[in-house]
Every structure is written in C-alpha cells, then in structure tokens.
Simulated assay, not measured.
Amino acid sequence: MSRLHVVTGKGGTGKTTVAAALALALADGGQRTLLVEVEGRQGIAQLFETESLPYEERKIAVSHGGGEVFALAIDAERALLDYLQMFYKLGSAGRALKRLGAIDFATTIAPGLRDVLLTGKACEAVRRRDKRQRPVYDAVVMDAPPTGRIARFLGVNEEVAGLAKVGPVHNQAQAVMRVLKSPETAVHLVTLLEEMPVQETVDGIDELRAAGLPTGSVVVNMVRPPLLGAEHLLTAGERTGDIARAFARAGLGGARRGGHAERLVAPLLEQGREHAERVRLERGLRGELHGQDLPVHELGLLSEGVELAGLYRLATELRGQLHTGAAHAGQTHAGRAQAATKAAESERA
C-alpha cells in the first residue's frame, strides 16, 4: 500500500477537498496521517475551520475510527533553513541569511529550488521513524499543484540530481526520487465529468507515466445523480404536444386558452432534454476515464457546499470505495496467482 498520496487536479475540481477527505479516510482505525499543503493558500485551514497553519505539524482532526489527522503548510523559506541546518550545520548563519533576504531571493530565482524543498519535506515525513523505528505517520497526503505541472513538480529532483553529480544535494535529490518513484507513492488525479478536466486528467496520466511516476487512482468529484430513469432519459424532450394536451385535459395550463399548456410544458421538457444530453455526455466521459486502466472513485456533490460535516461524509464515501477497491485488488491478485500456479503445473505436466 502507498504511504505518500499526491493529490492533483485541474483548478476548480476540488482537489484540496478531496485531499482532506482522503486524509480522513486513511486515518480510519487509529491510523495517523499527515496532510501537507505546498501552495501557500491555507486551503486546509479553511476546510477544517481552524486558524492558519504555521510551519509545524499540528493535529487538526480525529477520524470516525479514532485516527488522527495532522496538517502542515510547507513554507519554502523555512524548508530551506531546515535543509541548510541538516546538511551544512548553518543554523545561525542560515537565520542571518533570512534576515538579509537571501533565502527569499534564492527560492524565487533558483529554477526548481522551491519544488525541491517542498517535495523533499513531504518525503522526509514519509521516511521519518520514531524511537522504535516505526513510521511516525501511516500515510502522508499532499495537496499538490495542478495537473498541468504535476509531472514537472515531482520530477524536479531528478533534474537536480543530474546537475549536482556528487555531494549532499545530489544524495538528497536521489533519496527523494527513490520515494517518489517507488510503490510507496501514488499520484491521484481529481476531475469533474466535464470535457476539459477529463482531457487534462488523461494528459496528466500520460505525462506521469512517461516520467516513470506512479499513478494511483482517478477521483471524479461533485457527481450529480441522474434525475430521470433510463426509459425517460431516452424520450426526454419529445412528445411536447401529447404532454401539453394531457395537461389541458387535466385542467392544468388553461385548456381554454389554446396553446398555453404547450407553452407551459415546453420549457420543462427542454430542461429534461438538456439533462438527458448531459447524462449521455457524462457516460462517455466516464468511459474515457475507465479506459485509463486506473481505479475510478466518485464523490457526490455537496449541495450545501463544503463544510466540516460534509467533509466527513466525503471521507466516509471514499473510505468505503477504497476498502472495496482493496478487496477487489486482493481478489484479482489472488486470482492471478492461482492462474499462474495452474499454468506452471500445466507446463510441468
């Protein structure tokens, strides 16, 4: 099972909400998760209705199963100071550099340095052990940059390792890439059932695979249930005249005024037709997502907006789907193993 869950998605798809729900879902059964923010928007604090997160790991929630969710808003400047202290023992000198503005200058102009620091801090949390050599966190969830730049964001350490051939910078970059390209990491892509987000998701999956980065699952967010049954979806928007006459015979819509019933019914039927077209479009987009050979999870639209209770509901939805998917994966793995055993026995025979 993956321990670093990177959540990305096109802007407006609700990736921060999904990342927070995933952190709660993974904290089920007494687990400890760390929810990491790297874009400096304080979106996690808003979702959990708490004050702005400092550059420290702070407990912000308890899951239904008694697990704990911690959160961290990574600040690139503070991360660079940690880095300088860890590898070069520049504690006081590093603080002096910050006062002079050199730290902000470095993280602003150095290509990729900010991303190196952000990914490095998250991977450090994954590798961290307690005194008994057990992982401090069972899972780390990163609310990552949008899909359009996720492959570059995660792959920047590989570029740095290539530039710095030796020394602590090279070693640190390689250590980060070992985590990011291992089964410990899964990159999840959040989308909506709309053409542009789905296309960006498909493109993002291709880029991640080309970069050798492990993809996890696709999460379709804000899913609306169909309002009509399958039979009515086929005929939605048709037979306007028949329905108008039925309304008139029932005394609705003013039969004595001629076409008033038809004028009353027509807009309603037009809405039905548009809804049917929308459902057909979503069916095609679902097919495109399932064609990417990744698990696809769906989260319903929160009609009252995202508040804390709604976030827990999403976590419950997601937890159920993750457990179902894990069970299915286990059965699939067992089935493949059984098939392989039979094939080997047949070959020996």
Rank of each mutant, 00 (worst) to 15 (best):
Q271A: 11
L228T: 05
V190E: 09
V220L: 05
H232I: 10
V176L: 00
E270P: 00
L289F: 12
L227S: 13
F247S: 00
H232R: 11
A246M: 14
L281I: 13
A211D: 10
T185H: 06
A211Y: 10
T235C: 00
L180H: 09
G291N: 14
D206N: 08
V223L: 11
R257T: 07
H290N: 12
P197R: 04
T191R: 03
G251T: 13
L294S: 07
V265G: 01
P183F: 09
A261S: 14
D242M: 10
V202F: 03
R256I: 07
G291C: 03
D293G: 06
A173F: 03
K165V: 03
E277W: 04
G287E: 14
A250T: 02
L289T: 14
R178E: 15
L228N: 01
T185V: 05
L264G: 07
P267L: 01
H188K: 04
V218T: 11
A186W: 04
K181R: 15
G291L: 08
P168F: 01
Q292D: 03
K181Y: 06
V279D: 02
G259T: 05
Q174W: 02
E288I: 12
Q199V: 10
L264R: 11
E207F: 13
R286G: 00
G162S: 06
R280W: 07
L294V: 09
P214W: 07
G291D: 15
L281D: 12
I205M: 12
A276F: 10
